[in-house]
Design a protein around this nucleic acid. Structure first.
Length: 269
DNA sequence: ATGACAACCTGTGGGC
DNA sequence: TGCCCACAGGTTGTCA
């Protein structure tokens, strides 16, 4: 479900509901996520007040006065605010019950997501992450420099979190189309000028998707329950075989690193 | 260091 | 209608 825009939408959606609130209790119904959920989460968090909500890569950082809850939504995770007495559905694995009678509920059928407790801002999973795609340091010159000597296909290169975070399969496809570059081109053989175009495209597509509240595929909804509206604007993702919006050529689908890539063989070289 | 690939898990949709 | 396989928005770990 979530790529960076969906995580950012969740971040903005839940923040107003939890900042300033205190934790009444934490209910862990299913601790077997990507990594085991700490058994002591309830003990650690009960009574603590939330100070801020932020995002690093696709991790949500829920800061309390005692420590930070680091949440990843994996492929199918979501966080919603709802009345604490709402009967849990199948796959509603964790409730963070608040002092106002509501709760932050974590739902994740595939259990690829995670909950960590951090005593400080430091964590091994955050150590080797690349720059944020919407930051100043993520530039054409940066990508060009990082790509020299690399033979990896360009799409896999920009989806590598050590290079840049937050570019998932949907938006990698979209950005490469927007920049007019073939996804299978070796990263090390792309010019600096084309990397400038690509970086501009990545920033634009992510920024637009965030503005629209993320891409609704299947049942994604933001923290307040409202759907995202970006799906209707997708240029190539999910449109294999359909005509390119620019040249009407049939879009082609290939597989890269086990993920599907959709491209226009005419517009992307 | 790099790149290829399996692994984690459930749900869904297409083809037969 | 029902069964089986392939695939789905992510990331880590292992191996050559």
């Amino acid at each position: 479900m979530p790529e960076l825009p969906e995580v950012e939408t969740t971040c903005r959606g839940i923040a107003p509901h939890i900042v300033g609130r205190s934790v009444r209790e934490v209910i862990v119904r299913e601790p077997r996520l990507r990594w085991p959920v700490p058994r002591k989460l309830n003990q650690l968090m009960s009574g603590a007040q939330f100070l801020s909500v932020s995002r690093r890569a696709k991790y949500l950082l829920l800061e309390t006065e005692r420590g930070i809850v680091m949440v990843h939504l994996g492929m199918s995770g979501s966080l919603r605010i709802m009345p604490a007495d709402t009967p849990p559905l199948f796959h509603d694995h964790i409730d963070v019950v608040l002092d106002d009678g509501r709760c932050l509920r974590y739902h994740d059928p595939r259990r690829f997501g995670s909950f960590h407790w951090l005593e400080t801002q430091q964590h091994p999973l955050l150590d080797h992450l690349g720059p944020e795609p919407l930051s100043e340091t993520f530039s054409g010159a940066y990508l060009y420099g990082r790509s020299r000597g690399r033979r990896i296909p360009l799409k896999q290169f920009i989806m590598d979190g050590k290079v840049v975070v937050g570019v998932g399969n949907i938006y990698a496809n979209e950005a490469l189309f927007m920049a007019g570059i073939h996804p299978a081109r070796a990263a090390g053989r792309v010019s600096e000028m084309r990397y400038e175009l690509l970086v501009t495209a990545i920033k634009q597509v992510l920024g637009d998707a965030i503005e629209q509240g993320g891409t609704t595929l299947r049942d994604f909804v933001g923290g307040d329950g409202s759907p995202g509206y970006f799906a209707q604007q997708l240029r190539v993702y999910g449109r294999s075989g359909q005509p390119c919006r620019q040249c009407r050529t049939a879009l082609k689908e290939i597989r890269q690193g086990g993920r599907s890539t959709v491209l226009c063989p005419q517009c992307q070289r």
